[in-house]
Amino acid sequence: MSMRAQRRREFLATLGAGAVVGLAGCASMRGLEADGTAEASSSGEEAGVAGETLTLTTTTSTYDTGLLDELNAPFGAMYGVTVDAVAQGTGAALETARAGDSDVVMVHARSLEDEFMQNGYGVNRRDLMFNDFVIVGPRADPAGIEGMESATEAFAAVADSGATFFSRGDNSGTYTKELALWDAATIDPGGEWYLETGQGMGSVLTMATQQDGYTLADRGTYLSMKADIDLTILVQGPIEGGPELLSNPYGVIAVNPAVHDTVNYDLAMAYIGYLTSPAAQKTIENYEVNGEQLFYPEALSADPNFQQYVPDGWRPSGSED
């Protein structure tokens, strides 16, 4: 009995120690956070936003390429704030913003952005940067699309050959573009060869590698993962002289504070201002993975521009028809 009690006591002591370690971890984490805030408020009192948090919902491509950390670290330091970046995919990022659960979105599907703006959820959209989409596939290229000048013809050739095509199938910017391409090729994709994965770009590239399939990828994610996958670019995007249809522009949009009064609009606008500043645009231009530039800045132009961003087909109310 005393032996057992002894062992139990030991056990409880272990448990207690575990709890102490765990709680100490929490306490020091609290400490870290407190320190961070203290520092921020002492260095950035004039900013008036110090210590606040900006919630950014964005696409997996900006996050997975590592660009976002590169951009957000200086912004956080500049204003003494933290940026909570949630990588979701364009559709989900806009949906989260629509619910008022994020302050700013950075996405890449103009049609979805237009809808978001038209419905009044977003304000002050700015063009941020661009890269392009590429059609990638196995080196053997069973559908014979290598070097095609037309993305729609390439898609048609893949569909005809019955070679496996991996689709994001996830309401992302890339998926939106893919559907637009099938539409332009007047093909209704489906059947054995067409696989909707519902996964992020990285997963899809990995799956396509393992199963010798084709897919549509943004150049940034493709380049940043090139070392880990065995796919080659078969149809280039406009950056390398390919069709304009494969362009991939990124925009940044503040959530409308008149719709959701809980959003941090001031900080969202500060963030948009920062992203479109010469310094951040330079960061985008200089950002390289494996020696290759992933994104091209698009926010700055010396040409006069008197017009805010207007979604396609928008007419001011009162001028219907």
Partner: peptide
């Protein structure tokens, strides 16, 4: 939301969500 700051400090990233992130990127 699997959030980690630009400073490399996890805010809502756990071991499980970090594993999923690494796997998504093929690492």
């Amino acid at each position: 939301g699997n959030i980690a700051g630009a400073d490399g400090v996890s805010r809502t990233r756990t071991l499980t969500t970090a594993i999923r992130l690494e796997a998504r990127q093929g690492r």
